[in-house]
Write a protein that binds this DNA or RNA. Structure first.
Lengths: 256, 256
DNA sequence: CGAAAATTTGACGACTCTCAAGTCGAGTGG
DNA sequence: CCACTCGACTTGAGAGTCGTCAAATTTTCG
């Protein structure tokens, strides 16, 4: 899986489903996919790609950067999931028409837009590609489910470890991780929104991870010396990410 | 919207997306949908419709009864969502191939099976119906998102109120609610699995709802005297259920 | 009627929130 | 180059929610 090459050949969509069902796409389909992106744009930090209740005539491919899917309650922002390059972040807007949540940039992001008319065409004449589009929207649901479970099961430090492990895994699938960790534009406040805790408590949780040597988080740079230990601490089992090559853990049984 | 009539004409699929996008289906599509169900079956309480990691050649329409979508951790069962009649409970299995979670009956359930081959045919020659299938799987994701938010935002009594309000709303959409509440096969233990609390704490939360007169739950029967008060207490805004007729609240703005 | 499951109650401790300060780091203007 | 400012990060104390352990009571059903 040479991500670099793939991303050179398909600079706008080369990371779409990389490490997952992308291997099922023929070269013709990859080209077609790349051609779907009508135009690209660079968005600034904090830009709201789509707001709750809004309809849209196109969907957005995240090419570079980081985004959060958010809901707002009276006094707080809740991040229900995050997105990395290669994610078709609001493809579900095509089927849902209006969205029940917002999608916000964290840091600068580069995106490409795919007109919904073009997706209709794909549904008409390439059921296989259409099925993969469908698949990609269901990955979000699987991540939501896992997160519901982790919210109920884990304390704050373990939740953070789980989030770190997931970001790392997903960045790795699209060729954007380091061997000793990864970089994100996330602040501790963003992490608080992601794990349903206050920023103060998240700060203490991060301090705990630092103290125990499980992970170090400073200004968006996550450093991990023992990846297995991080995974174990966060009870992270990647099966729900539907990667192509199941890890050893998964081969033993169904995805955990 | 005469659910009764619809359910007489389409006894197996008449509740599919009732109150939501069902209105977009032509009579021909409703007939076709009904014909997709190859065979029906009655399942006993506790039956596992599909287990984590399993693949399947068909998907399951819930015709009568109640189901939970569950994940299991070391010592606990987590119910990440529930299903009422008319839900195509494991349609996403078609696009995902293997599932990341289980689907379990609560009480006796009647189901119908739709072969995946038949769904492939629908994708080929009825993109509109296919799009509604896609839509129906995304409703689950929207409910997951809302639940993540509520887990982070609400205390146990409020979570229970939210769950009650959602079950009531969804049963109503398929014509199965009473005017003063609804009936379910759920136990307090199931509710605990659904709201991420222990059965003991759920019991105290229910006692609280009973004491304040917001809701009374006894042996699966939920009685509510003031529905608006229940909704307010559980901070329930139904926009995320994508009902056809937005409530007054929703008209003012995007779905809450 | 008896057994199993579901529900209820009480005491204590752990996790997390709120309120209140205080420190550190990057970018700006003098 | 330095003072300033704003946001992000850090620390401490007290209160509330919820989990655990232990046990009693009620309901269901064979």
């Amino acid at each position: 899986m040479n991500n670099l090459n793939e991303f050179e050949r398909y600079p706008k969509t080369g990371r779409f489903l990389a490490g997952r069902a992308r291997s099922q796409l023929s070269e013709a389909e990859r080209s077609r996919m790349e051609a779907l992106v009508a135009e690209t744009e660079v968005l600034e930090h904090g830009h709201r790609v789509i707001a709750r209740g809004q309809t849209s005539k196109h969907s957005t491919m995240l090419i570079e950067g980081f985004m959060l899917r958010t809901l707002e309650s009276e006094n707080r922002r809740h991040a229900v999931s995050f997105h990395v390059p290669g994610d078709f972040v609001d493809l579900h807007c095509f089927a849902l028409q209006r969205l029940d949540h917002n999608i916000d940039c964290v840091g600068v992001a580069k995106v490409g837009y795919v007109p919904h008319d073009a997706i209709v065409q794909v549904m008409r004449d390439d059921p296989e590609l259409a099925r993969l589009f469908w698949f990609s929207t269901l990955l979000d649901a699987a991540m939501h489910r896992r997160w519901i479970m982790k919210l109920e099961q884990l304390t704050a430090p373990c939740r953070i470890a789980h989030i770190f492990a997931e970001i790392w895994e997903r960045l790795e699938m699209v060729g954007l991780a380091r061997t000793d960790g990864f970089d994100t534009p996330l602040t501790q406040i963003d992490l608080a929104d992601m794990c349903g805790a206050t920023a103060i408590h998240v700060n203490r949780a991060i301090a705990e991870l630092r103290k125990t040597g499980i992970a170090d988080f400073r200004r968006g740079r996550v450093m991990v010396s023992d990846r297995e230990r991080l995974k174990e601490y966060g009870d992270f089992n990647p099966g729900y990410l539907y990667a192509d090559a199941p890890s050893v853990v998964d081969i033993a049984g169904p995805p955990a």
